[in-house]
Amino acid sequence: MADKIIPRWEWRTFGKEFPAFAETLKKYGEPSVKRSEEHYILSRASDENIKIREDLVDIKSLKNVKDGLEQWDPIFKEGFPIDQGKLTSLFKVFNVPVPELKRSTYVYEQFLDEVIVPNSQLEVVYVKKVRYIYSINGCAVELAETEFNGKPFQTACVEHIDPAVVMATVNELGLQGQENINYIKAMKKSVGM
């Protein structure tokens, strides 16, 4: 039996840069570095986190909010080609009507070009990330360089299964007072949705 995934609590913020935070992180050693290119799909009728990375549709749903922190729960992972039944489930997450599906299955490009892009309720955002990840107090802590459709941002994040540990680490790293903004809110603001 697979291990049960325990959703983590997340604190995240976005800005042009975080020089003091970057300097503070240097005392915690060398980070692991992860690079990725992803497509996020934004819905005008939903704030769920829906992305495609490495040919896999990955959805996280906002499960809880506590003391300004957010707990996201993985609810859907599906590779391509993707069939009509899975697409119907996906459109329930988008909270928009299922369009006419002319194929029994869709590969990645067909899914984006024929199903997502023509839908006025949805918007695709091309995202590049370079994530510098540290382990501090048992938390995953990151400073990341991101681009949303070529527009650059930095993001700072602290994640852990215990919200008290997240907040203690946010305070230790001097990030308190910054607004907690998740990827979807930041993207929607960036693209004017």
Results as ranks from 00 to 15, higher is better:
Gly192Glu: 09
Asp113Ser: 13
Val165Ala: 09
Ile133Trp: 00
Asn49His: 13
Ser36Val: 08
Val117Arg: 14
Thr146Arg: 05
Glu17Ile: 00
Leu173Ile: 07
Ile181Asp: 05
Ile52Asp: 11
Asn171Ala: 15
Glu145Phe: 01
Pro118Leu: 04
Lys86His: 03
His39Tyr: 14
Val141Gly: 04
Glu179Pro: 05
Ala45Gln: 15
Tyr28Ile: 02
Pro7Leu: 10
Asn119Val: 02
Asp55Arg: 12
Lys102Gln: 13
Met167Leu: 15
Ala164Glu: 15
Ala20Ile: 07
Tyr108Cys: 13
Val96Arg: 06
Ile41Val: 15
Ile50Tyr: 11
Ser104His: 11
Tyr106Met: 04
Asn49Ile: 06
Glu23Ile: 02
Tyr108Glu: 15
Lys26Pro: 01
Gln71Asn: 11
Val117Gln: 09
Thr146Glu: 12
Val65Asn: 06
Ala164Asn: 14
Ile116Tyr: 07
Ile41Cys: 09
Asn137Ile: 00
Asp55Phe: 03
Leu112Val: 07
Phe80Cys: 01
Glu30Asn: 13
Ile50Leu: 12
Lys27Val: 07
Val115Met: 06
Phe91Pro: 04
Glu147Tyr: 06
Lys102Val: 09
Gly85Tyr: 02
Gly192Ile: 08
Gly150Val: 05
Lys128Gln: 11
Leu90Met: 02
Val93Ala: 10
Tyr132Trp: 05
Phe80Gly: 04
Val170Thr: 10
Leu69Ser: 08
Ser43Val: 10
Thr155Trp: 01
Lys26Glu: 13
Gly174Arg: 11
Asp3Asn: 12
Cys157Met: 13
Val98His: 01
Phe80Met: 01
Arg53Glu: 15
Asn149Ser: 05
Thr13Met: 04
Glu30His: 08
Ala144Met: 00
Pro19Thr: 02
Arg12Val: 07
Asp67Phe: 01
Glu48Asn: 11
Tyr126Ala: 10
Pro74Ala: 03
Tyr132Cys: 03
Met193Asn: 04
Trp72Thr: 02
Lys66Thr: 09
Glu37Gln: 12
Gly174Asp: 12
Asp67His: 06
Leu143Val: 01
Lys63Leu: 15
Gly85Lys: 11
Glu179Ala: 15
Leu62Thr: 06
Leu87Phe: 06
Lys34Trp: 06
Phe153Trp: 10
Trp9Phe: 13
Ile116Pro: 08
Val127Leu: 03
Thr155Lys: 11
Pro7Lys: 05
Leu25Cys: 01
Leu175Cys: 08
Trp72Lys: 01
Ile6Arg: 09
Ala2Glu: 15
Leu143Gln: 08
Glu145Lys: 10
Ala2Leu: 12
Thr24Val: 09
Arg44Thr: 15
Asp58Trp: 00
Val57Lys: 08
Tyr126Thr: 09
Glu123Phe: 00
Lys34Asn: 12
Lys26Tyr: 00
Gly150Met: 05
Glu109Ala: 12
Glu38Thr: 12
Lys4Ala: 15
Arg35Leu: 06
Tyr40Gln: 05
Lys26Phe: 00
Val107Tyr: 03
Lys16Val: 02
Leu101Lys: 03
Ile181His: 03
Glu30Trp: 00
Gly15Glu: 06
Lys92Glu: 15
Ala156His: 00
Ile5Phe: 10
Pro99Ile: 02
Lys92Gly: 06
Leu42Asn: 10
Thr13Asp: 05
Met1Lys: 11
His160Trp: 04
Met187Gly: 04
Lys60Pro: 01
Val65Leu: 07
Tyr132Asn: 14
Ala144Thr: 10
Asp162Val: 07
Phe80Pro: 03
